[in-house]
Design a protein around this nucleic acid. Structure first.
Lengths: 353, 353
DNA sequence: TCAACGGGATGATGCGCATTATTAGCAACG
DNA sequence: CGTTGCTAATAATGCGCATCATCCCGTTGA
């Protein structure tokens, strides 16, 4: 039988005070010069202890305006590519930050999935309103969806750099350009000259940045830029061999495992004959898998930073006109680019003699 | 400029109807014979679409409705032991189920962390109220916390079998007894007779069940039960060698990697000289790590099943006495035990000749 | 003696929603 | 012409809490 929960009114009755007094004691606050004597406070506290009262969060939030819930919307459905391997680390960081901020995290899993990716439209983005603000992660194209968020002044932060189309959007991304450049530097320092970049064309920001970092740094070193189109892994490996490359850069989404296996099948040992640097973490880390050299993306930190930023944005635009002194978020915090960390493992070596 | 949330009143104004009408249209219900014409319904729906209205969950809850949000409470803080590796798979399953059920998932990250574990007491369990029900995962002892949930008739489901102390609680767990028994069978079938169980004492359900499965099955095969206490890994390895065991069972939390390494350091090859079966997935799967034979826990399925069960419980006891026709959840669904899957990899072999 | 004051507490209000009770309008009926 | 019956919608209420405006009462200053 649904026993009615204890309310502040119950406590108040027991302590012989008003509901308002209980509220004041609980929050230990005096918003408008309200004073409660220590004696009364104690009486209320006792009543609270005896009754086992605990606040109804729904009511608290309803009265307070904010829900203290921050949302996370993932465009890609997590399943098809075992995506959790990719998003997990972000979530860890997000969770950590949420803990510190004292907010709960709402995963928008109710949005319709179309073509293997979630839509923010229609049913989807309306639910966002539940949270005070929202983190957006994953590749994204639909500009219209975004516009709505902007129009309604809904606080949100992207995880991952936003380029041309969304240059004005708040995000926390990583500096792929610099990180990729450093890989070329590492190879050049070891004496590599025939350094290739294996990948398929893409217009997504990470790809663009990696390519730019590669291209610019090769030029800086006076080396020839060698792009190897990735279509069939076997053909690609052949191409790599033909060009007598001694090192290649590969992004995680471009089948590095398969490529390395194929290269070794052709007699090219990794890394003795050819170094393979991974531009990010492997998509499917498996026990027994290769331990890649390259760089790693600070996903947990990204998640944490993004949530903190979002939290600030929310604070900056609380609906309550009371707080006109709301802190504005400076532009350089609105778009953050974090650095990657170089990884020294088993797929980097000097070029063969 | 402060963003005031759109409310039903706003929608109502735009559609030229009353707030109540909007509520009726939204819930598509007519509790006491209320009727809304299709024409009006459409007008309201349009207004909802245009304004981008979304219900405030706090208000919904306060008014006694459902939020279509299901909560997930993890006792262990995810960080200390890279817990996400452990909880991640559950979440994947939960997310999948949530998608199908059309509900959102709320991670209770706001609860205070004490001694590296979250507390459901005080601040903690109150927030639960936002969600329609809650999944509980992780080891847990505090009976008092639970009692509160039971008293308030709050729907919840444990992930992981609950034993003596909570024999009456809803849970979705795995059959460790049977799974462990099967491992002994596998070893016995290969001719092993000196089969040990390495572990430290524990009163947690998984440990109790694994031990029972081991003990019972060894007896059934007429083999001597050999427990090897795990304290110092080196000492344990020595003990294993001394007893001339040809196979050991190890739970993931009992440092299987270190043990295997130590055994090999002592000249015992795995699995040629000694088979090591892992009773669950490795806690920290790393590229380059060992590929364990043993069994694996269907964590994703557990997560999904648990969420489905929770969903049913919520439906069954919407606290409102209005729905006396609420479907009851049969006892055998309330406590589910799933089977584990045997894994055949690289750490199982016949005993040395 | 009366106004001014300030500590101590309360009543009233509204947050956004679901729901019940009630009303308005209209057709059919006796 | 009054009554019933039915549809379509609204007004009103309360959920539990935070907060503002107000009030009460004992002290002080003039």
């Amino acid at each position: 039988m649904p026993r009615r929960r204890i309310t502040q009114a119950d406590v108040a009755a027991m302590a012989g005070v008003s509901q308002a007094t209980v509220s004041f004691v609980l929050n230990d606050s005096n918003p408008s010069g309200v004073r409660i004597s220590e004696e009364t406070r104690q009486r209320v506290r006792d009543a609270i202890r005896i009754t086992g009262y605990s606040a109804n969060p729904a009511a608290q939030r309803l009265a307070g305006g904010l829900t203290q819930i921050l949302g996370v919307f993932t465009y890609e459905s997590t399943f098809p590519q075992g995506g959790r391997d990719f998003y997990g680390p972000f979530l860890v960081g997000i969770e950590h930050a949420a803990e510190k901020l004292g907010v709960d995290i709402l995963l928008f899993t109710s949005a319709r999935v179309e073509d293997g990716r979630r839509r923010l439209t229609r049913d989807g983005w309306q639910r966002l309103g539940i949270a005070d603000g929202c983190l957006l992660l994953g590749q994204h194209e639909d500009r219209g969806e975004l516009q709505h968020l902007l129009d309604t002044n809904y606080p949100f932060v992207f995880i991952g750099k936003r380029g041309s189309d969304g240059g004005r959007l708040p995000y926390v991304g990583v500096d792929y350009v610099a990180a990729t450049a450093r890989q070329v530097d590492r190879l050049a320092a070891l004496g590599h000259t025939r350094i290739g970049y294996v990948g398929s064309r893409g217009t997504d920001q990470p790809t663009l940045d990696r390519v730019e970092g590669y291209r610019a740094t090769m030029k800086r070193h006076g080396l020839t830029v060698r792009f190897v189109e990735l279509d069939d892994v076997a053909a690609t490996a052949a191409e790599v061999a033909d060009q007598r490359l001694t090192a290649v850069l590969v992004a995680p989404e471009n089948s590095p495992e398969e490529l390395a296996d194929e290269l070794e099948r052709r007699g090219l040992r990794v890394p003795d004959d050819i170094s393979v640097l991974l531009l990010g973490q492997p998509l499917h880390p498996r026990p027994g898998g290769r331990r890649w050299s390259g760089f790693s993306i600070p996903r947990e930190e990204m998640g944490a930073r993004a949530l903190h930023l979002l939290s600030r944005l929310v604070a900056a635009d609380t609906g309550r006109p009371a707080r006109r002194d709301a802190p504005q978020v400076p532009d350089d915090e609105l778009r953050q680019l974090l650095g990657c960390v170089d990884v020294d493992a088993e797929t980097l070596a000097p070029p063969p003699a």
